[in-house]
Amino acid sequence: MSFVEYGDTIKDGDTAIVFLGHESMFPVKVQHGTVTQTKYGVIRHSTDLIGKKYGSKVTCSKGGWVFILHPTPELWTMNLPHRTQILYSTDISLITMMLELKPGSIVCESGTGSGSLSHALIRTVAPTGHLYTVEFHQQRAEKAREEFREHGVEHLVTVTNQDVCKNGFGVSNIADAVFLDIPSPWEAIGHAKSALKAEGGRICSFSPCIEQVQRTCLAMEEYGFTEINTLEILLRVYNVRTISLQIPDLGKAAEDNSSTGFDSSNPSNQGSPCSNLQQGTVQFKSGVPLREMVGHTGYLTFATKS
């Protein structure tokens, strides 16, 4: 496996995702001789994992079973060890497209944080592109380097441990795109501009607060960026449920009920409302929004250097 290439079978040293069901999963480093505990029992790596196909069902010691999945940046985002707040796939999708990233792109990022976005960026720019990521926190920078090595993508990324606002990205005139997720992005706009190619490129800044956005937009204008555009994207997830609603009893005779439109003797329209008159209910399928959803992650400000 690698985060930038699909493999068929699970090998020693791979990072795999153990899927327990209902969005419950965790990453596991596959190693000969090791075991992993789950609520369905023990998984023995040597016999249960190594040599098996990705996507297969693995039976645990208690008779329960799990699925073993090939790692992707999206699965990693859902399972990575948090060292900071992270960006989730919804924002990442928009960032990737609006920065016009593709294989061969050179990207600068700061800060690296937990590497959630980094993995997605690396996936997109591979095999000929490169990511230059700057993290001012030494421990986090180290940890990120280690992860990239484990995930087989170290050749596509350079982690620099410095302050991007003071020292910049450590490269100049080579980037197609720059991404900023730092508390004071306006202090790094100048460095971002010099990191971008002379012929131009795209920039994106992620900030949770509108005051940060305002200062960033002003700085972008000052440095001659054009097409400045601020967006916010929200993900709405729906649960698919079969709902049954009771028909109120208005005291009418049974014959009258059948003429209200909820006619069970009409099997032609499957999937649409069908009724169960004996119990006085109507059943239908619905996409129900989650009771609670993420209402705000951050504002995404995009701009072009030309």
């Binding site: 509108i210 601020t230 916010e232 929200l234 993900l235 997830v237």
Partner: peptide
Amino acid sequence: VINLKLSETWLRNYQVLPDRSHP
């Protein structure tokens, strides 16, 4: 198949100008 998810995204555009920022 596993991990089935039905979703939709909302997109909001902002006007960002000094003292005049709003969706």
